Amino acid sequence: MRTRWFDRPLETIAMLWHIERADGIALGFAAHDRDLVIGHVRYHAAPGMLPSAIEMDDGFDPLDMDVGGALSHQLIRADDLEAGRWNGAAIRMGLVDWERPQDGAAWFWHGHLGSVSIEGQQFTAELRGLKALLDADYAPTSSPSCRAEFCGPGCGLSRARFERIGVLAAVEGDALVFEGLVGPDAAKLVQGQVRWISGACAGLDSRIIDHDGPGLLLERSLAPQPQAGDLALLIEGCDKAFATCSARFGNAVNFRGEPHLPGNDLLTRFATF
């Protein structure tokens, strides 16, 4: 690996992009006119993928930038971008000497993809660096609802108890009907997730916002639409209310909220005698 860059009158440098999507797909691209193989990973030629100006400093403010390119590469498809397969993908950028790719790459930026927009045959994706994590609240904010993610850190419940594999029986309008799922079971899935594990939607997930009898209503429509016989992981949800945590899950001891704390409306109430 080269230890110094941009120290010669004529450089043979290509920029690399290594992307790992949430659905488990890992892709590599090189701002070069031919594919490069580095560390058993093929970086596909994508000379049209260029970042905005790269700025790095030792401060704590997030330094965001964008990457843009043409929807011309077969691995960058508009339907995948619109379906959200690229949202939140882990990404790293680096440099390589394309005359000596066997020397490896020098990685200089790590982060993830933010919002992705498409205009015509061009796409633009926001790049969010590791310092963006500093935007999170330093201390938890009081709230009447639970701050913990259901079955996540602080909740204490095992997700294995509240998930099942379902087989899609039919798509009725905006509702998805799964085999063997009845109304009471569908109600438990509200605020949960559907995570597809087979079919054209494999790797995608969507939040369940309501149910119509046994049919599940999702937060957003999927493209392409799932078909009967597709398998999905159905994960129950929680409305983060103290009553639900106590009565339904028996988990009040781990409730991460302040349900009895007086709110701002206390100041506007009329005095009673």
Rank of each mutant, 00 (worst) to 15 (best):
T3Q: 13
L10H: 13
T12K: 14
I13H: 07
M15H: 03
D23R: 07
I25E: 07
G28H: 01
F29C: 02
D33S: 12
I38V: 15
I38N: 03
V41Q: 14
A46I: 05
L50S: 11
P51I: 04
P51W: 02
D58Y: 14
D58Q: 12
P62F: 06
M65V: 10
D66C: 09
G68F: 08
A70L: 11
S72G: 08
I76A: 00
R85M: 08
G94I: 06
P101Q: 10
A105S: 12
H110G: 09
G111F: 02
S115I: 10
I118V: 15
I118P: 04
E119R: 13
G129R: 00
L133Y: 12
L133G: 09
L133Q: 11
D135W: 09
A136N: 12
Y138D: 14
Y138K: 15
P140T: 07
P140Q: 06
C146R: 01
E149V: 13
G154M: 04
C155N: 02
G156W: 04
L157Q: 07
S158I: 06
A160W: 08
F162N: 00
D174K: 14
V177H: 03
E179W: 04
G183R: 12
Q191V: 05
R195A: 11
R195P: 01
H211M: 07
P214D: 01
G215K: 02
G215H: 03
L218I: 12
E219N: 14
R220I: 08
A223C: 11
P226V: 01
G229S: 05
D230K: 03
K240Q: 11
A241F: 02
F242K: 01
C245N: 03
C245S: 05
G250C: 07
E258H: 13
P259I: 05
P259T: 00
P262F: 09
L266E: 13
R269M: 15
R269T: 12
F270T: 11
A271H: 10
A271M: 08
